[in-house]
Amino acid sequence: MAPPPAVAIAPGVFRIPTIGSWAVNSFALLDDDGSVTLVDTGVERAPARIVAGLAALGKHPADVQRIVLTHAHPDHAGGAREMATRTGAPVAVHSGDAGYAGEGTSPPNDRSSVSGRLFARVQNGRFPPVPVAEELADGQVLPVAGGLRVVATPGHSPGHVSLLHEPTRTLITGDAIFNVLGIRYSPRVFCTDFRMSKRTAHVLGELEYDRAGFTHGPEIVDGAREAVRTFLARTPR
């Protein structure tokens, strides 16, 4: 069975699966004026799935007014250049990842383990470079659907961010944590600094939200904060 083109998480907040039913996700936030903000753009071939997801919401690429990237990895920023071209929307990413997005290359991965050093030898980490129009900062509130707060959660990449949509109390985790066979940290080999990623993920337990959307894994629409805090409480920083 084909995955749905878009899944409602909260009023005006939708998950758009770009690989499988939830293996890699983008998100669309709808404003009252009809405009759309995209969060993450999947791999390079993902724009077709994103456009289909928008169509299911009655939206067109021309409705997209902003593209926000949680970080500069190929499965999150790979489709950014094409979506920016199709929509004419500016791309925003945290200052720590802006240079990597502009160059179309992933930040270095954690080489503190044998697997990390081996992965560094074989990974490509390239994607189409995308011009960055805005560099995000921790605590910044974007004028998106009533307020989208930038929450710095570095470690997975130097400028990794999670996002909190305050009006609907919906958290978009980025890769700070996954929801694949349960809530878990990103694998070490995908992180720039795995220890930092684990440490900063605990910020998510201090925020106020009811729902969580994961860029890898299905959303949690009931008791999300409790589920995240339970996971964090049993794992060391």
Rank of each mutant, 00 (worst) to 15 (best):
M1Q: 11
M1E: 11
P4H: 07
P4Q: 15
A6Q: 10
V7N: 04
I9C: 03
G12Y: 10
V13N: 02
R15P: 01
P17S: 01
S21I: 00
W22S: 05
A23D: 14
V24Y: 06
N25W: 10
N25M: 10
S26R: 04
A28T: 10
L29N: 09
L30V: 15
L30R: 13
D31A: 15
S35W: 04
V36T: 13
T37D: 10
T37E: 10
L38V: 12
V39F: 12
E44M: 10
A46P: 03
P47Q: 05
A48G: 05
A55K: 15
H60Y: 05
P61R: 06
Q65R: 15
A72R: 06
A72K: 05
A72M: 05
A72G: 04
H73F: 02
H76W: 02
G78P: 05
G78F: 07
A80E: 02
R81E: 02
M83Q: 03
A84M: 03
A84W: 00
T85P: 00
P90Q: 06
A92E: 14
V93R: 11
H94F: 09
H94Q: 14
A98V: 06
G99P: 02
G99Q: 01
G104E: 06
S106I: 06
P108W: 04
N109R: 14
N109D: 06
S113G: 06
V114M: 13
S115P: 00
S115C: 00
R117M: 15
L118W: 14
R121F: 09
F127Y: 14
V132R: 12
A133S: 15
E134F: 12
E134N: 03
A137P: 03
G139P: 08
G139I: 08
Q140W: 08
Q140A: 15
L142C: 11
V144Y: 14
G146C: 13
L148R: 13
V150R: 13
V150Y: 11
A152H: 14
A152Q: 09
P158C: 04
H160K: 06
V161G: 11
V161D: 12
P167V: 08
R169Y: 03
T170A: 04
T170G: 07
L171R: 08
I172R: 09
G174C: 11
D175C: 07
D175K: 06
A176Y: 03
F178L: 15
V180H: 01
I183F: 01
I183L: 13
Y185K: 00
P187G: 09
P187Q: 10
R188A: 13
R195L: 14
R195P: 01
K198H: 08
R199E: 13
A201E: 04
H202S: 08
V203K: 14
V203G: 01
L204K: 02
L204S: 02
E206L: 08
L207M: 07
R211I: 09
R211H: 08
G213W: 12
F214D: 01
F214H: 03
G217A: 03
E219G: 12
E219R: 07
E219Y: 11
V221D: 05
V221Y: 02
D222L: 11
G223T: 12
A227C: 04
V228A: 02
R229Q: 12
R229K: 08
A233D: 12
A233T: 04
A233Q: 09
P236R: 12
